[in-house]
Protein backbone atom coordinates (compact mmCIF):
# COMPACT_ATOMS: atom_id res chain seq x y z
CA UNK A 1 0.00 0.00 0.00
CA UNK A 2 1.59 3.29 -1.08
CA UNK A 3 1.29 6.66 0.66
CA UNK A 4 -1.79 7.87 -1.24
CA UNK A 5 -3.60 4.57 -0.73
CA UNK A 6 -2.96 4.90 2.99
CA UNK A 7 -4.30 8.45 2.94
CA UNK A 8 -7.53 7.35 1.22
CA UNK A 9 -7.90 4.40 3.62
CA UNK A 10 -7.27 6.58 6.71
CA UNK A 11 -9.65 5.79 9.57
CA UNK A 12 -12.21 8.65 9.74
CA UNK A 13 -11.65 8.85 13.48
CA UNK A 14 -8.28 10.51 12.83
CA UNK A 15 -10.17 13.26 11.03
CA UNK A 16 -12.39 13.64 14.11
CA UNK A 17 -9.33 13.84 16.36
CA UNK A 18 -7.93 16.61 14.17
CA UNK A 19 -11.24 18.53 14.27
CA UNK A 20 -11.50 18.05 18.04
CA UNK A 21 -7.99 19.43 18.57
CA UNK A 22 -8.63 22.31 16.16
CA UNK A 23 -11.68 23.30 18.20
CA UNK A 24 -10.59 22.47 21.76
CA UNK A 25 -7.10 23.99 21.75
CA UNK A 26 -8.04 27.56 20.68
CA UNK A 27 -10.88 27.62 23.24
CA UNK A 28 -8.84 26.29 26.15
CA UNK A 29 -5.83 28.47 25.25
CA UNK A 30 -8.09 31.53 24.91
CA UNK A 31 -6.93 32.42 21.39
CA UNK A 32 -8.73 35.42 19.91
CA UNK A 33 -8.32 36.37 16.25
CA UNK A 34 -9.05 39.66 14.55
CA UNK A 35 -12.23 39.49 12.49
CA UNK A 36 -11.29 41.63 9.51
CA UNK A 37 -14.04 43.48 7.68
CA UNK A 38 -17.71 43.16 8.53
CA UNK A 39 -19.78 41.51 5.80
CA UNK A 40 -22.32 43.88 4.14
CA UNK A 41 -25.45 41.90 5.25
CA UNK A 42 -24.40 42.14 8.92
CA UNK A 43 -23.58 45.83 8.50
CA UNK A 44 -27.01 46.39 6.88
CA UNK A 45 -28.68 44.66 9.84
CA UNK A 46 -26.76 46.85 12.29
CA UNK A 47 -27.59 49.99 10.29
CA UNK A 48 -31.30 49.07 10.25
CA UNK A 49 -31.31 48.93 14.07
CA UNK A 50 -29.23 52.12 14.31
CA UNK A 51 -31.75 53.94 12.09
CA UNK A 52 -34.59 53.39 14.59
CA UNK A 53 -35.58 56.19 16.94
CA UNK A 54 -35.22 55.58 20.71
CA UNK A 55 -38.45 54.12 22.08
CA UNK A 56 -39.38 52.40 18.82
CA UNK A 57 -40.59 48.81 19.22
CA UNK A 58 -38.71 45.91 17.62
CA UNK A 59 -40.39 42.54 17.17
CA UNK A 60 -37.97 39.63 17.64
CA UNK A 61 -39.05 36.07 16.83
CA UNK A 62 -37.13 33.26 18.54
CA UNK A 63 -37.72 30.54 15.96
CA UNK A 64 -35.04 28.08 16.98
CA UNK A 65 -34.32 25.33 19.45
CA UNK A 66 -31.47 24.29 21.75
CA UNK A 67 -29.72 22.44 18.90
CA UNK A 68 -29.03 25.78 17.17
CA UNK A 69 -28.10 27.72 20.32
CA UNK A 70 -24.34 27.84 19.59
CA UNK A 71 -25.01 29.89 16.45
CA UNK A 72 -28.13 31.82 17.33
CA UNK A 73 -27.75 32.59 21.04
CA UNK A 74 -24.67 34.82 20.49
CA UNK A 75 -26.61 36.58 17.71
CA UNK A 76 -29.68 36.98 19.92
CA UNK A 77 -27.66 38.37 22.83
CA UNK A 78 -25.79 40.84 20.61
CA UNK A 79 -28.98 42.04 18.87
CA UNK A 80 -30.95 42.37 22.14
CA UNK A 81 -27.99 44.22 23.71
CA UNK A 82 -27.85 46.57 20.72
CA UNK A 83 -31.60 47.26 20.87
CA UNK A 84 -31.55 47.91 24.63
CA UNK A 85 -28.52 50.18 24.32
CA UNK A 86 -30.45 52.18 21.71
CA UNK A 87 -33.43 52.35 24.15
CA UNK A 88 -35.63 50.38 21.74
CA UNK A 89 -38.54 48.39 23.10
CA UNK A 90 -38.29 44.64 22.49
CA UNK A 91 -41.32 42.43 21.87
CA UNK A 92 -40.43 38.75 21.61
CA UNK A 93 -42.55 36.01 20.06
CA UNK A 94 -41.82 32.39 19.15
CA UNK A 95 -43.12 30.17 16.37
CA UNK A 96 -41.14 27.27 17.85
CA UNK A 97 -42.21 25.79 21.23
CA UNK A 98 -38.61 25.91 22.45
CA UNK A 99 -38.29 29.61 21.59
CA UNK A 100 -40.13 30.78 24.73
CA UNK A 101 -37.49 29.46 27.15
CA UNK A 102 -34.61 30.60 24.95
CA UNK A 103 -36.05 34.11 24.70
CA UNK A 104 -36.53 34.17 28.48
CA UNK A 105 -32.86 33.24 29.02
CA UNK A 106 -31.54 35.84 26.57
CA UNK A 107 -33.82 38.63 27.83
CA UNK A 108 -33.12 37.98 31.50
CA UNK A 109 -29.33 37.71 31.11
CA UNK A 110 -28.85 40.70 28.77
CA UNK A 111 -31.71 42.68 30.35
CA UNK A 112 -30.20 42.33 33.83
CA UNK A 113 -26.81 43.36 32.48
CA UNK A 114 -28.28 46.45 30.81
CA UNK A 115 -30.58 47.38 33.69
CA UNK A 116 -33.68 46.87 31.54
CA UNK A 117 -37.07 46.24 33.13
CA UNK A 118 -39.33 43.37 32.09
CA UNK A 119 -42.69 44.68 30.91
CA UNK A 120 -41.31 48.18 30.34
CA UNK A 121 -38.27 47.71 28.10
CA UNK A 122 -38.98 44.21 26.85
CA UNK A 123 -41.59 41.48 26.93
CA UNK A 124 -41.59 37.81 26.08
CA UNK A 125 -44.99 36.94 24.56
CA UNK A 126 -43.99 33.30 24.15
CA UNK A 127 -44.95 30.57 21.75
CA UNK A 128 -48.15 30.35 19.78
CA UNK A 129 -48.98 27.42 17.49
CA UNK A 130 -49.99 28.01 13.89
CA UNK A 131 -46.98 29.81 12.35
CA UNK A 132 -48.68 31.37 9.28
CA UNK A 133 -51.84 32.18 11.23
CA UNK A 134 -49.70 33.79 13.95
CA UNK A 135 -47.71 35.88 11.44
CA UNK A 136 -50.93 37.07 9.77
CA UNK A 137 -52.64 37.65 13.11
CA UNK A 138 -49.84 39.93 14.35
CA UNK A 139 -50.56 42.15 11.36
CA UNK A 140 -54.13 42.68 12.59
CA UNK A 141 -53.87 42.83 16.40
CA UNK A 142 -50.97 41.56 18.51
CA UNK A 143 -53.05 41.39 21.70
CA UNK A 144 -55.65 39.25 19.90
CA UNK A 145 -52.98 36.65 19.13
CA UNK A 146 -51.27 37.11 22.48
CA UNK A 147 -53.85 38.19 25.10
CA UNK A 148 -51.24 37.26 27.73
CA UNK A 149 -47.45 37.19 27.72
CA UNK A 150 -45.37 34.13 28.63
CA UNK A 151 -45.56 35.10 32.31
CA UNK A 152 -49.37 35.26 32.23
CA UNK A 153 -49.68 39.07 32.32
CA UNK A 154 -52.30 40.86 30.25
CA UNK A 155 -50.46 42.03 27.13
CA UNK A 156 -52.46 45.19 26.51
CA UNK A 157 -51.70 46.44 30.04
CA UNK A 158 -47.90 46.30 29.67
CA UNK A 159 -45.95 49.55 29.31
CA UNK A 160 -43.75 48.04 26.60
CA UNK A 161 -46.83 47.45 24.44
CA UNK A 162 -48.10 51.04 24.69
CA UNK A 163 -49.09 52.27 21.23
CA UNK A 164 -48.23 48.92 19.63
CA UNK A 165 -51.21 47.27 17.96
CA UNK A 166 -49.84 45.59 14.86
CA UNK A 167 -46.98 45.63 12.33
CA UNK A 168 -48.00 49.17 11.41
CA UNK A 169 -46.51 50.31 14.75
CA UNK A 170 -43.37 48.16 14.55
CA UNK A 171 -40.63 49.61 12.30
CA UNK A 172 -38.46 46.46 12.32
CA UNK A 173 -39.04 42.75 12.74
CA UNK A 174 -36.13 40.36 13.40
CA UNK A 175 -36.40 36.62 12.86
CA UNK A 176 -33.81 34.48 14.65
CA UNK A 177 -34.30 31.27 12.75
CA UNK A 178 -33.05 27.72 12.47
CA UNK A 179 -35.71 26.57 10.01
CA UNK A 180 -37.87 27.91 7.23
CA UNK A 181 -39.60 30.61 9.31
CA UNK A 182 -37.87 33.54 7.49
CA UNK A 183 -39.75 32.54 4.33
CA UNK A 184 -42.99 32.85 6.29
CA UNK A 185 -42.11 36.27 7.71
CA UNK A 186 -41.04 37.45 4.24
CA UNK A 187 -44.09 36.01 2.46
CA UNK A 188 -46.73 37.18 4.93
CA UNK A 189 -45.40 39.97 7.16
CA UNK A 190 -43.32 41.69 4.47
CA UNK A 191 -45.40 41.12 1.34
CA UNK A 192 -48.83 41.56 2.89
CA UNK A 193 -48.14 44.14 5.60
CA UNK A 194 -44.93 45.70 4.19
CA UNK A 195 -43.15 44.91 7.45
CA UNK A 196 -39.38 45.48 7.34
CA UNK A 197 -37.80 42.08 8.06
CA UNK A 198 -34.22 41.26 9.06
CA UNK A 199 -32.97 37.79 9.91
CA UNK A 200 -30.38 36.08 12.05
CA UNK A 201 -29.89 32.57 10.78
CA UNK A 202 -27.82 29.40 11.00
CA UNK A 203 -25.08 29.26 8.37
CA UNK A 204 -26.74 26.27 6.66
CA UNK A 205 -29.61 28.53 5.56
CA UNK A 206 -27.49 31.40 4.26
CA UNK A 207 -27.40 30.51 0.57
CA UNK A 208 -31.19 30.11 0.53
CA UNK A 209 -31.72 33.58 1.96
CA UNK A 210 -29.16 35.70 0.12
CA UNK A 211 -31.53 36.20 -2.86
CA UNK A 212 -33.98 37.95 -0.51
CA UNK A 213 -31.32 40.47 0.47
CA UNK A 214 -30.72 41.40 -3.14
CA UNK A 215 -34.43 42.05 -3.69
CA UNK A 216 -34.73 44.09 -0.49
CA UNK A 217 -37.20 41.66 1.07
CA UNK A 218 -34.67 41.31 3.88
CA UNK A 219 -33.05 44.49 5.15
CA UNK A 220 -30.17 42.64 6.81
CA UNK A 221 -28.84 39.17 7.50
CA UNK A 222 -26.62 37.88 10.30
CA UNK A 223 -25.12 34.59 9.19
CA UNK A 224 -24.20 31.96 11.78
CA UNK A 225 -21.45 32.27 14.36
CA UNK A 226 -19.40 34.44 12.00
CA UNK A 227 -22.27 36.93 11.74
CA UNK A 228 -22.67 36.87 15.53
CA UNK A 229 -18.97 37.65 15.96
CA UNK A 230 -19.23 40.52 13.46
CA UNK A 231 -22.26 41.92 15.27
CA UNK A 232 -20.51 41.65 18.66
CA UNK A 233 -17.60 43.55 17.14
CA UNK A 234 -19.93 46.26 15.81
CA UNK A 235 -21.49 46.84 19.22
CA UNK A 236 -18.05 46.65 20.90
CA UNK A 237 -19.09 43.85 23.23
CA UNK A 238 -17.22 40.60 22.57
CA UNK A 239 -18.99 37.43 23.66
CA UNK A 240 -19.24 33.79 22.66
CA UNK A 241 -19.33 34.69 18.96
CA UNK A 242 -15.89 36.34 18.85
CA UNK A 243 -14.50 33.76 21.28
CA UNK A 244 -15.60 30.94 18.97
CA UNK A 245 -14.15 32.38 15.77
CA UNK A 246 -10.54 31.35 16.42
CA UNK A 247 -11.65 27.72 16.79
CA UNK A 248 -13.85 28.16 13.70
CA UNK A 249 -10.94 29.47 11.61
CA UNK A 250 -8.48 26.74 12.67
CA UNK A 251 -11.10 24.02 12.08
CA UNK A 252 -11.73 25.49 8.60
CA UNK A 253 -8.00 25.40 7.83
CA UNK A 254 -7.92 21.73 8.88
CA UNK A 255 -10.90 20.93 6.63
CA UNK A 256 -9.37 22.82 3.68
CA UNK A 257 -6.16 20.86 4.21
CA UNK A 258 -8.11 17.58 4.23
CA UNK A 259 -10.04 18.52 1.07
CA UNK A 260 -6.80 19.34 -0.76
CA UNK A 261 -4.99 16.19 0.43
CA UNK A 262 -8.04 14.05 -0.35
CA UNK A 263 -8.25 15.43 -3.89
CA UNK A 264 -4.52 14.99 -4.54
CA UNK A 265 -4.76 11.40 -3.28
CA UNK A 266 -7.79 10.74 -5.48
CA UNK A 267 -6.14 12.09 -8.63
CA UNK A 268 -2.84 10.35 -7.84
CA UNK A 269 -4.65 7.04 -7.46
CA UNK A 270 -6.64 7.59 -10.66
CA UNK A 271 -3.46 8.36 -12.57
CA UNK A 272 -1.75 5.29 -11.11
CA UNK A 273 -4.67 3.02 -12.07
CA UNK A 274 -4.56 4.37 -15.68
CA UNK A 275 -0.86 3.66 -15.92
Amino acid sequence: MNFWERILALDRRWVYVGIALAVILPITLGLEMTLGTTSPPTQDFYDAVEALKPGAPVLIAFDYGPSSMPELDPQAKAIVRHCLSRKLRIICVALWPTGTALARDVLSSVGEDMGAVDGEDYVNLGFKAGSVAVILGLGEDISDVYPQDAEGRKTSGLAVMKGVKSYADVPLMVDLAAGNSPFGWISYAHERYHQKVAAGITAVMATDLYPYLQTGQLVGLVNGLKGAAEYEDLIHHHGMGVRGMSAQSIAHLWIIFLVIVGNIAYFAMRRASRE
Partner: peptide, 11 residues
Protein backbone atom coordinates in the same frame (compact mmCIF):
# COMPACT_ATOMS: atom_id res chain seq x y z
CA UNK B 1 -19.26 26.44 9.21
CA UNK B 2 -22.63 25.66 10.84
CA UNK B 3 -21.59 22.18 11.98
CA UNK B 4 -18.27 23.39 13.36
CA UNK B 5 -20.17 26.16 15.19
CA UNK B 6 -22.33 23.53 16.90
CA UNK B 7 -19.21 21.66 18.02
CA UNK B 8 -17.69 24.93 19.25
CA UNK B 9 -20.85 25.60 21.26
CA UNK B 10 -20.65 22.21 22.95
CA UNK B 11 -16.93 22.54 23.65
Amino acid sequence: MARISLLIGRV
